[in-house]
């Protein structure tokens, strides 16, 4: 019993010591809060061809494929101004009505589905944003790549040009340019 108590006190004190001496981590923001804000900014710095937007339309549809974590983060971007238009955040659980989107954020899809989806909407004026290399490898436009705790923007310029989209030089300056596979 003495040994047993000894063991537990050792554990107890070890825990206390480790916890009180711990190095304080740098304050970090939730990944998807930043990604959602980036999507908003990318929408602000993108020009769509007139054909992609109805003449009287004052809304930019940002469609989100992702779980509740992603959805919650993007909710903060709903009704924000994008130039003279307003951003409308729409959740797509089962890949419905993708053609109505001006921006499509892809999270959590299986690789094979991503590849097919991107090939189906390849030349359509939809700004496709994803979070894995597959997206830009297979004709997607933007990849938000998390590297050592920061988000790096990768842009596939060929893909944006083929779809008739123009992304501002201000964004291109801080982005890494990549090509399809």
């Amino acid at each position: 019993m003495l040994i047993k108590n000894g063991l537990f006190y050792t554990v107890f004190y070890l825990a206390i010591i480790l916890l009180s001496s711990r190095a304080v981590f740098a304050d970090a923001t939730q990944e998807y809060t930043v990604k959602a804000a980036m999507a908003l900014n990318l929408a602000r710095f993108t020009d769509w061809p007139d054909s992609a937007l109805k003449a009287d339309d004052s809304v930019i549809n940002l469609c989100v494929l992702g779980d509740n974590v992603v959805q919650d983060a993007f909710l903060q971007m709903d009704q924000k101004k994008v130039g003279h238009r307003t951003l409308s955040v729409i959740y797509l659980s089962r890949l419905r009505n993708v053609d109505d989107c001006q921006v499509l954020y892809i999270s959590g899809l299986e690789k094979n589905i991503i590849i097919q989806l991107l090939s189906e909407i390849k030349h359509k004026p939809i700004l496709t944003i994803g979070e894995e290399r597959t997206v830009v490898d297979y004709d997607g436009m933007v990849n938000l790549d998390t590297l050592s705790g920061k988000i790096n923007i990768q842009i596939n310029l060929d893909a944006t040009k083929q779809a008739g989209l123009t992304i501002s030089a201000r964004v291109l300056k801080i982005a890494t340019l990549v090509k399809s596979k």
């Binding site: 740098a26 970090a28 923001t29 939730q30 990944e31 980036m38 988000i151």
Partner: peptide
């Protein structure tokens, strides 16, 4: 934004 430290 590209300089914000993120956590997941």
């Amino acid at each position: 934004l590209v300089n914000v430290q993120v956590t997941s």
